[in-house]
């Protein structure tokens, strides 16, 4: 499945079939991802549906030079989760993320394709051990501090740091020629 092309088909021609394929592939994964991070099932269902609704509405804003479709969708889900969690605080954090994404931070010299970066990262993750993967997931996806990761997995802080160091070295080797 070429997810980038499906998003672009929604953007160019409101392609409902492309949307159905994206929904069937990504909505259950967004739901799974949110539940793994501790979101209750009914809320995860709602946020997953809203994530895909946002994909439809904002398809024209998708830019594969910045991020591939799965990364773009993951950040949409993240923003919705943040909005929901901080609703009562009138948080504007998701607007801050949108400003960073939309206007683009000051670009580095070389323009690299977001889709290409995504593919490399995906490939690199398959080379991690199960233990490394779990630490990467908690530290980078859930954003826990290294100390919190250590507490959650009941392993020493030093072990967390060394696993992350190895995992990041591995990841950055895969991205080296893109940087």
């Amino acid at each position: 499945m070429d997810a980038d092309a499906l998003v672009q088909a929604i953007a160019s021609s409101a392609d409902r079939q492309a949307f159905a394929r994206l929904f069937d592939h990504f909505a259950p994964r967004v739901k799974g991802l949110l539940m793994r991070g501790g979101t209750p099932p009914d809320l995860a269902e709602e946020l997953a549906q809203e994530t895909l609704m946002t994909v439809w509405r904002k398809a024209a804003l998708f830019d594969p030079t910045k991020a591939g479709a799965s990364t773009w969708i993951a950040t949409i889900a993240r923003n919705l989760r943040i909005d929901h969690a901080r609703r009562e605080k009138r948080s504007r954090l998701s607007q801050v993320f949108e400003i960073l994404e939309e206007e683009g931070p000051e670009q580095p010299d070389q323009v690299i394709s977001g889709s290409e970066r995504d593919a490399r990262v995906r490939q690199a993750l398959t080379g991690l051990s199960k233990e490394q993967y779990r630490v990467v997931e908690l530290a980078f996806l859930e954003g826990f501090s290294h100390q919190d990761v250590a507490n959650r997995l009941s392993i020493p802080l030093g072990t967390v740091k060394s696993r992350l160091r190895l995992a990041m070295a591995h990841l950055r080797r895969h991205l080296e020629d893109l940087r």
């Binding site: 739901k31 799974g32 549906q49 990364t71 969708i73 993951a74 995906r122 993750l125 997931e137 990841l171």
Partner: peptide, 27 residues
């Protein structure tokens, strides 16, 4: 961007939990 890409990669290979609603519902 790399950290976001890790999120995307974890999403792409992550576990799917069946949805109760469909694409038609969303549309």
């Amino acid at each position: 961007r790399e950290i976001d890409a890790i999120g995307g990669a974890v999403l792409a290979r992550g576990e799917a939990v069946p949805m109760l609603s469909s694409a038609e519902d969303a549309l």
